[in-house]
Write a protein that binds this DNA or RNA. Structure first.
Lengths: 357, 357
DNA sequence: AAAGGTCTTGCAAACCTTTTCATTGCGTGA
DNA sequence: TCACGCAATGAAAAGGTTTGCAAGACCTTT
C-alpha cells in the first residue's frame, strides 16, 4: 500500500547532500546555505516526500499525540470537551486520540498500560470516574501513569493525586438552582440523579442537600441507573407514581439535561404542564436545552472552555512550562422558562448572578 | 517525566536472556521454553515494563492508528459515527485519532501531508466534503493519500475515486418522506436545506425534486447558510414571512434534525401548531428527535452501523484482506407525530416500509 | 553410533530520523 | 601573513524494537 515509501536518504542522495542537511532544511532551517536549501526543497517537492513522524518520535521521545479518556463521545458534554481539546492540541501541532473508558468500569492497570505503551505526550482524563472500592486505588493507578506522562483531570478532584484539575463547582451550581427555586416559592424540590457517574452526581447531591436544608426546603431524592432521556422519562413517572399527589414535589432538579429531556416528555405524557404544574431545571446546558418546550432552565458548565483550558495546561506540562494550576469554574445559571420564572425571570436571574436567555 | 524509562535491553539483561527472547515472550510466544518465558515474565512484571509502541511501529510499518476525518464531532451524527468506529478499531487493538476538517474548507495537500506524516494505518473520511471547483481535484488529492494508506469514505460517492464507500441513500430517503407526506394529502411541501454540506444536501434535494414532480407536489426550496438549530428557527420564520399565507407550504422537510429542532421552536413562536397547522419532518434521526414536542418524524440513517461497518472495511483493507465492497444503506422512515400521521401512523409507516415509534 | 530433526536462543541488521561532534573552507582582524 | 571565528556540511551514533539467519542443544530413527 505504502507504495511511495522513500526516505530522507533517497532525498539526500538525489539532492547530493547528506541526510543531516535535508533534516535541517525540513525542520528549523538553521545554518544551511540558501542555495542548498533551495535545491533540497525542490527535490522534496518533486517527490512530495513526507518525513516519517514515527521515526522522529522515537528519537525525540515526543509523539505529539495526546490521549483523551472519556466514557461516551456521544454525550454532548463530552463531545464539547473533546472538540475544544482537539482544537487546542491541533493549533499546537499535536493530535489527539480517544480512549473510551466505560461509565461503570474502573481504570485498570491494563488500561493504563495501553496508554503507556503508546508513549503519549500526555493524557486528559475526563469524566466522573467511579470511585473504586478503595479510594487509594484510583490515585495509585494514576500516579503510576504520571510517571510516564503528565495528566490533567476534568472531574471532581481526586484525593491524593497531585495534578492539574479543572472542573466546574457542581455543588455550588446546584445550590444556585435550589436557591432560585426556593425564591420562586418552591417548598418541596426533588433531585433526579443517576447512579452512573458517582462522583460528579455526588457533588451535585451534596449541594442539593445542603442548600435544601439551609433554606428549609423539603428534598426528595430519586435515582436511576443510567442517564439517558429514556431513563428520565421513566424515572419521573416512577417518582410521581410512588408518591401521593399531595406529597408531590413542585419542582424537579435533574442531574443533567439529557435526562431532563426525558423528564419533560414524561410529564407531558402524564398530562402535566411545565412549569405551571411542576417546574423542571436541568444542570448542564446542552445545545438542545434552548429548544425544548418549554426551554429549559439550567446550569452552564462551559464544557468548551473546560476542554480548551485543560488541554492548554496539559501542553504546558508536557513542555515543562510552569504555570500549572488547578481551578474550579463557576457554573452559570441560565434562566429560561421551565422553572416558571418567565415573568420575573430577568430579576431572578440577576439575583443569582446568571443570565436570562 | 518519563522517569521509569527502561527498555527491552534492561529486561533482557535482568532476566539473563537476549532482547530477542524477551520480544518473543511478549508478542506471539513462539518457540520459547516455558521456563524462560516464566522468568522473563517475572522480570517484566517486576518492573512493569511496557514495550515502546513507537519503536515497534517504526519497524513493523504499522502504527495501529487509524485516522478519522470529520467536520464536527459535536454534531450528534458525527459523534455516533466516530463512537462506533472507535469501538470497532479498539476491539481490533487499534486506536483512533480525530482530524477535524471544517465544513467549508476543501481537503488541501497540506492536510493530506499531515495524515501521511503520521503514517496512519488508514483513514476514514466522513462528511459531505465540499466539491472543489474542479471535481477532479478532490479525487486527485485523495488518490495521492491512497498511495500511502487505505481509505474508506462515508459520504456521497466521489467520482473517479476507487475506494470502499458506505453511505445511506439520502435521495431515496427523502423520496420516502415526500411520498409519505403526499399520501397524507400534502400538496405543497417545502425543503429547508443548508448550503454547508453541499454534496449530501444535494442528494437530498435531488430526491425531493424528483419525487415532488412525480407526485405533482409543489416544491418550495429554501436554503440557509449553516445547519444549527438557531438557523432552523430563523429560517422557517424567514421562509413563511416571505410568502403570502395562501402560498404557505403545508409540510416542511428539514435537511437534518438539528435544524428541525429550531424549526419546531420557530413555528411555536409564530403561534403555529405542529402538525395541525403545518407538518414537519426531519431527516437524520438523532437522540433528541424522539423527545421533541411533538416527536419528530424522520429518517434513520443508522450512523452507528455506518461507523462500525466502515471501520471494519478499513481494517480489512489495512490487513489486505479481500471482501472490500461499497454499499448504500437504505434509510428507514420513522413515523412519529410531527407529520400528522398519528392516527393512521401505523398504516402509513407500513406503506413506506418504516416503523411507527 | 551416526545422521538428521526439532526446539530454543542469540546475533545483528533493519526501521528512519535527529543531533552531536568534527571537519572544511572562508573571511576578518591583528 | 597568521590565527582565529564562524558558517556550512557530513559522519556517525542513538532511539527501542522485531525478525531472519545461524548455531547450539537435545532427541529420535535407522
Amino acid at each position: 500500500m505504502a507504495a511511495a515509501n522513500l526516505t530522507i536518504l533517497d532525498i539526500a542522495k538525489e539532492a547530493g547532500v547528506s541526510p543531516a542537511t535535508v533534516s535541517r532544511v525540513l525542520s528549523k532551517h538553521t545554518n544551511v546555505s540558501p542555495s542548498t536549501a533551495q535545491r533540497v526543497r525542490e527535490v522534496v517537492d518533486k517527490y512530495s516526500y513526507q518525513p516519517n513522524s514515527i521515526a522522529r518520535g522515537l528519537l525525540q521521545r515526543q509523539s505529539h499525540v495526546l490521549g483523551i479518556i472519556m466514557p461516551d463521545i456521544k454525550h454532548p458534554y463530552y463531545a464539547s470537551v473533546f472538540s475544544a481539546a482537539q482544537r487546542e492540541a491541533g493549533s499546537a501541532g499535536s493530535v489527539v486520540q480517544l480512549y473510551r473508558l466505560a461509565y461503570n468500569s474502573a481504570i485498570t492497570d491494563d488500561f493504563i498500560s495501553h496508554l503507556i505503551e503508546r508513549r503519549l505526550d500526555g493524557a486528559l482524563l475526563c469524566g466522573g470516574f467511579i470511585e473504586p472500592s478503595d479510594p487509594k486505588d484510583l490515585s495509585a493507578v494514576l500516579k503510576h501513569l504520571q510517571q510516564y506522562m503528565p495528566i490533567v483531570t476534568i472531574c471532581p478532584p481526586i484525593q491524593g493525586l497531585d495534578c492539574v484539575n479543572i472542573f466546574p463547582d457542581l455543588e455550588g451550581g446546584i445550590k444556585k438552582e435550589v436557591g432560585h427555586l426556593a425564591r420562586l416559592g418552591h417548598k418541596r424540590i426533588a433531585f433526579i440523579g443517576a447512579t452512573q457517574e458517582t462522583r460528579s452526581v455526588g457533588e451535585r447531591e451534596l449541594g442539593f442537600r445542603m442548600e435544601a436544608e439551609r433554606l428549609s426546603v423539603k428534598p426528595v431524592l430519586h435515582y436511576e441507573n443510567i442517564h439517558t432521556p429514556a431513563m428520565g422519562e421513566s424515572s419521573v413517572q416512577r417518582l410521581l407514581g410512588s408518591l401521593p399527589r399531595s406529597a408531590w414535589p413542585t419542582a424537579l432538579i435533574v442531574v443533567n439535561d439529557l435526562m431532563a429531556l426525558g423528564v419533560l416528555k414524561g410529564l407531558r405524557r402524564m398530562g402535566l404542564r411545565v412549569p405551571e404544574d411542576i417546574a423542571v431545571v436541568g444542570s448542564d446546558n446542552q445545545f438542545f436545552s434552548e429548544y425544548t418546550d418549554p426551554p429549559l432552565t439550567t446550569l452552564d458548565l462551559n464544557a468548551e472552555e473546560l476542554g480548551q483550558l485543560s488541554m492548554r495546561q496539559l501542553l504546558h506540562a508536557r513542555d515543562s512550562k510552569p504555570a500549572s494550576y488547578s481551578q474550579v469554574r463557576d457554573p452559570m445559571l441560565i434562566v429560561r422558562e421551565s422553572c416558571g420564572a418567565s415573568l420575573s425571570g430577568r430579576t431572578a436571574a440577576l439575583l443569582e448572578g446568571g443570565v436570562y436567555a
